[in-house]
């Protein structure tokens, strides 16, 4: 097993280098540069000397291969450099935003699992019943609604309901407070975005649970268990659900790594100062160092999650051998 993990880790090196090269090239293909974004924003004239000073500051005068080596070398030694936009260490920029995003991602996952697994199971057990149809319709609606639309609507609903209940509209604060400072306020801020993301996430998970359950329910050992006269509940809980969970766990893992994409839009809708919003800002500001670090972070998370999921998978299911 250790050999398998080592092998997988070695295979991830080209992925990381490839992703590094891709983001490096993509960012530099975008016309213009950070100095123009910085100085041109307001429509006044850009002073030529200010532009020159800015270019020197951000190191735009270094050659491309050197810049790439800096980036790879820095990444390998854990030195992510300085954000070209704010002049602050990239690690600090990311660390400031990570708690909000992580909190929402974890909460959304919890929401998704709590909704998806029971409903997906019921849906499979009652295949093609009206219950199944309703559950599937709700699930697919979650996948079909643009996430920003869901977010904007959910705030409006909160505003209207609170006005109806208390006479004046209420919404959570738009100034994030960390969990350890004021847990209640913090929860009121993160709950809506977590639900919005969690709904979509649960829809995907629910569909996977349903089809995995359907497949497992047709396996011989389930028939045997049923034939032995075991209680249906026991069959489902002990035998079917446990085995159906394998692909579901995989999906949850992979989707967790993909959450960053969902956060990009949701954090904008709810005005959260998280990683997703930082990502968009970094790309639009043409902040090479920050974008590169963020891409490498997501790629690394993706690689690690995949590895963990695969190892878990193999560990849970003895039929899979480490190849």
């Amino acid at each position: 097993m250790y050999r398998y993990i080592l092998n997988r880790l070695l295979l991830s090196i080209p992925t990381l280098i490839g992703a590094a090269a891709l983001v490096f090239i993509l960012m530099r293909l975008i016309p213009g540069d950070i100095c123009m974004v910085r100085l041109g924003g307001s429509g006044g004239s850009i002073s030529a000397s200010a532009l020159a000073v800015c270019h020197a500051q951000v190191g735009a005068d270094r050659s491309m291969p050197l810049q790439f080596l800096d980036f790879i070398g820095g990444f390998a030694t854990g030195n992510f450099g300085i954000s070209m936009w704010s002049g602050k260490p990239v690690v600090l920029e990311i660390a400031t935003r990570l708690p909000v995003s992580l909190e929402i991602a974890i909460l959304a996952t919890v929401v998704a699992v709590l909704i998806a697994i029971p409903l997906g199971t019921i849906s499979a057990l009652k295949q093609n019943s009206w219950l199944d149809h309703i559950v599937r319709t709700v699930a697919i609606a979650g996948i079909a609604t643009p996430s920003f639309w869901l977010g904007i609507l959910s705030i409006l609903v909160v505003l209207d309901v609170s006005r109806w209940l208390f006479g004046s509209p209420w919404m959570p604060s738009i100034d994030y407070v960390p969990l350890w400072v004021d847990p209640l306020q913090n929860l009121s801020i993160v709950i809506l975005p977590a639900l919005t993301i969690g709904y979509r996430y649960s829809a995907v998970t629910m569909r996977m649970t349903r089809s995995a359950m359907l497949e497992v329910l047709r396996e011989d050992y389930i028939r045997t268990a049923r034939a032995k006269g075991l209680l249906e509940q026991l069959v489902v809980n002990r035998h079917a659900l446990k085995n159906a969970m394998l692909p579901v766990v995989t999906l949850i893992g992979i989707e967790f790594a993909f959450l960053i994409g969902g956060l990009v839009v949701t954090e904008q809708v709810f005005n959260l100062n998280g990683i997703g919003r930082l990502f968009v800002q970094a790309v639009q500001n043409q902040d090479y160092t920050l974008t590169q670090a963020l891409v490498m972070l997501t790629v690394a998370v993706f690689v690690v999650t995949n590895l963990v999921v695969d190892v878990l998978y193999a560990w849970l299911d003895p039929r899979i051998r480490f190849g």
């Binding site: 505003l159 609170s162 509209p169 919404m171 709810f270 005005n271």
Partner: peptide, 14 residues
Amino acid sequence: AKQSVRVDAIRADR
């Protein structure tokens, strides 16, 4: 940065 948030925030007196 997003307009809908700003309108909502004034509405709710945030």
